[in-house]
Write a protein that binds this DNA or RNA. Sequence first.
DNA 1: AGATGTGAATGAGTTCACAGCT
DNA 2: AGCTGTGAACTCATTCACATCT
Lengths: 220, 220
Amino acid sequence: MAASPSAVSSLTLNRLSIYLRALRHLAEEGVDTISSQRLAARLDLSAAQIRKDLTYFGEFGVRGVGYSVTDLTARLSHLLGLDRTHPIIVVGTGNLGSALAHFLNFADRSFRVVAAVDNDPRKIGRKVGEVTIESSSRLATVVRRSGAQIGVLTVPRKAAQNNYDQLVRAGIKAVLNFAPIRLVSSADIPTKSVDLRVFLEELGFHLFQGENGRPGASAR
Amino acid sequence: MAASPSAVSSLTLNRLSIYLRALRHLAEEGVDTISSQRLAARLDLSAAQIRKDLTYFGEFGVRGVGYSVTDLTARLSHLLGLDRTHPIIVVGTGNLGSALAHFLNFADRSFRVVAAVDNDPRKIGRKVGEVTIESSSRLATVVRRSGAQIGVLTVPRKAAQNNYDQLVRAGIKAVLNFAPIRLVSSADIPTKSVDLRVFLEELGFHLFQGENGRPGASAR
DNA sequence: AGATGTGAATGAGTTCACAGCT
DNA sequence: AGCTGTGAACTCATTCACATCT
């Protein structure tokens, strides 16, 4: 098996998640072997793309046959760390934060919200999903006590960097940031930023194009 | 000025959103001219990248000087269609859907939630933000009556394709899909899919790497 | 025959480096 | 002198095409 490469692109990694989801659906449908060709057709991408992505991590298939659905599922789950449970702390329990808290607990047993903090004194003591909201001022303590590994940042822009720094100092292992800011991030803490408004604004552009007579191209 | 190109990549388009946000902050700070160099430093990317992105759409700068903050803000806003208001319908008012509904109305005057539908009879008649939830069975009617241009799909996977098709038939102009499925999409309706679990799973991979002794690389 | 795994070819996206304008 | 706009060079990602295995 190939050693894990020093750097795999986000693009490849994100497609692994997509493959994994499709594989789970295939298992539900009772399929037990799948070729890159047929998986690609389902996902609307190329067979070569799938094979290339997989070979970054090893040889998972059988020539002349294809991939075992259960085997590949297990191996991708393991690669993405989904065969263990990652405790999450939600920082900021506004609309988005509390929605994500619920969403994550329902969606998957690989991620579990174990703590939540907020700035607003009125929210402290309330529950979001299974956990009780605590004060942001106790962030470091809460991280340590809960054993949270991943911080989900859903605070306003101006609070984001400060909360990020506190998470890092408290020993968080990774951060998913939804605040619309370029975080100054510690190089050794995997940090991913997602800005939801950006997606809408992309559509805004295409709408505008459509109006000007040009047929709107489908965004990927 | 350069004509809008037939195809601009999502990457470029998404960076325009980022530039625009930074420009707004600069304006708040009272800055009125900015060079690609200084903007790049702020956003942690290259000056050439910024200039190249902008030249897809025209010549916005002044040689020897830089870009006028207010001028560039206006031009990017216009390009992204943010100088008009886009009516949105939220399809599926679960955790994520209702969070987005609130979030979008607060965040920006360019997008306004004008309607929401849900499958669950118990939710119908309730309010989410300013709008009253209606039945998904009336989706087409609601789209037409409300004049919604953008559909935000936050329904379970199995309902997504069907709701998407209905949105399209009812004349929606663009769709932002959060359901974890590859939509079979009409080529002339800009459609963007975002899968939040994918982002977490990317972090899951990096956590796993970290454990195996390799220093975790920062995800972009 | 039919599928994978992979080097080679192509294509997309980014950075370089500099001519040209203020 | 300083900064934009842009072809050319380069790097990263995808696709091709085929040797290899079942």
